[in-house]
Nucleic acid binder design. Sequence first.
DNA 1: TCTGGGGTCCTAGGACCC
DNA 2: TCTGGGGTCCTAGGACCC
Length: 347
Amino acid sequence: MTRAWVLHVDLDQFIAAVEVLRRPELAGRPLVVGGRGDPTERGVVSTASYEARAFGVGSGMPLRTAARKCPEAVFLPVDAPEYEAASSKVMDTLRSFEVVVEVLGWDEAFLAVETDDPEGFASRVQQAVLEATGLHCSVGIGDNKLRAKIATEFGKPQGMFRLTEENWYAVMADRPTDALWGIGRKTAKRLAGLGIMTVGELASTDPHRLAAELGPTMGPWYRRLARGVDPSRVEGTPWVARSHSRESTFQQDLTDWTQVEDEVRRLARQVTEDIRREDRPAVRVAVKVRFAPFDTHTRSLTLEHSTSDAETIGRAAVELVNRFERTRAIRLLGVRAEMVPPDKAGA
DNA sequence: TCTGGGGTCCTAGGACCC
DNA sequence: TCTGGGGTCCTAGGACCC
């Protein structure tokens, strides 16, 4: 019988795999892509190949640490345009199935599929992606987006897994709460403080207690996650950004305020280009400062009039950075522009 | 483990208005 | 005047995701 399914397609070690495509001699070697590809610099791992993961290297890890764990790894710089191009090919392939496709980033998408054989469909998707791009993917099959997304992990690499209302608790009940999509380290710790360790325990916690402890929106939402409930639909309409930002971490902390202002102006120019490209004037500007060693603060302001003028945005950014004390060394600067909301832009 | 860069959404306090 | 209650906007921070 034909039923509605959600498929979550996730490319395996996407960034590393794209690098191997253009440099086949790297196949089978531990490969780490991150920063500028120099493991002595400040930067983190974007993606490690499975060979590198065997040494304990993983996403988000400082490059220096990765080099210590796996000295023989090949380190490569992040090449965003290359990954975007590969990603477009993948997404076009998914759309060729004439189903609703919701893109979640470079290497992930949800598909809304009506079929009596979701595994067969998933298999055809994997085959098509491999033929079109040379890339392998895993597929999560679910009765909603949340379950499909979580299912993918159990199918990796190059496989598939079905997770629905029927097997949800059998698969998930004893897993830690941060196995859920939306619960991270901090919330898992807060829940542990309430004696809630597993998905099963979270699912059966009194919702009023969760609301009281974690907020009226988030508390009940976490409980719904634990029950595998997700009413959201697969959205085919292209995603529209609400803000754009540029930031950079300096290899050496900045101590000269003239240089700080120059960098803020440079970032503001980049952000202005980004929003002009989309023809979306800014309504609000924010500046982010990370002081050494790592404490991070933001200052923001609402503009009197929305604008795409580089000069105005630059002046606002400099004014914001000057609200910070000038005596501390700065590790990172960032500038963000919030745009006119799309629904108010026209229509 | 000395911790990137680009995003989203929620919370909470204060201002301000009626 | 020693004192209300609701709504909305602004701002800073925090958590999470890829």
